[in-house]
Design a binder for these strands. Sequence first.
DNA 1: TGATATTTGCAACTGGGTTGCACTTTTATG
DNA 2: CATAAAAGTGCAACCCAGTTGCAAATATCA
Lengths: 138, 138
Amino acid sequence: MTDEETLHNAGIRITAVRLMIWKQIRHGFNSVFSLYDLEEAMPTVDRSTLFRTLTLFSDAHLLHNVDDGSGSQKYCVCHHDDTRHCLGHVHLTCVKCHKTFCLNNVTIPPVTLPEGFIPEETEYVVKGICGHCSTKPH
Amino acid sequence: MTDEETLHNAGIRITAVRLMIWKQIRHGFNSVFSLYDLEEAMPTVDRSTLFRTLTLFSDAHLLHNVDDGSGSQKYCVCHHDDTRHCLGHVHLTCVKCHKTFCLNNVTIPPVTLPEGFIPEETEYVVKGICGHCSTKPH
DNA sequence: TGATATTTGCAACTGGGTTGCACTTTTATG
DNA sequence: CATAAAAGTGCAACCCAGTTGCAAATATCA
């Protein structure tokens, strides 16, 4: 599936800017990224446009919002091929390099919720020191 | 254990303001609270003092920092009697009333982490509609 | 009691996110 | 193709929660 098809299938109108942003997201980041990361990578595009485009992609379920507890909103590409909403997966946040990684293959273990609580979304974040930072102490 | 003893045992110097803040936290909130909640409840104390005191209490493990994905830092009282660091427990966030609740009796189920990753803290947040909001639709 | 250290309040600043509005681009229609 | 309507974009300004520098107030110690 081409990038154009991906956007089109998600019901998103294609523009030059949006295609650029999508390609950057798709091919330019290896893990979770923030609005600030995107700003750094695409200085020619205005922050508000990036912000609105991220919101658009997120609403269209092309991206998944991640709260990693860093205080700033993070995003990652949904790797599920089906049209259903992404199921939550576990995220790791490194307290040294401040990068966040998806464990795409690890689904969140369920817990028993109190009666009457209707769950919508689950976030599971492990903070610690990532393999890269733990083997190469600075 | 009196409030004075609690602070003293945590290695915190006792002042009138700190004691007031601790009593408010301990007896004035029924669940997780934010800096803003504390500001509302104690308008005579300056925000920076509240902030610094929260940080102090948190460092002394009297409070537990909670990231509920709302974008603002939340805190809850550590209910563990031992001196060890609080083990993580599950939090529920209501997307309607924006309150966050602790499931003190539910510990976070572990997941298998990639080799080399050294975990320090785990956050498990379920977003949804709480019992109160789901039974009383507005 | 006077000197020193700690705490507190005020004000100002930061950073990430968000919005109003004018300008530009795209799309639809005659 | 011309042109009106709709949608997208950039700029600037704003908002909010959190954070910090500094001076005044308070507590501690010799």
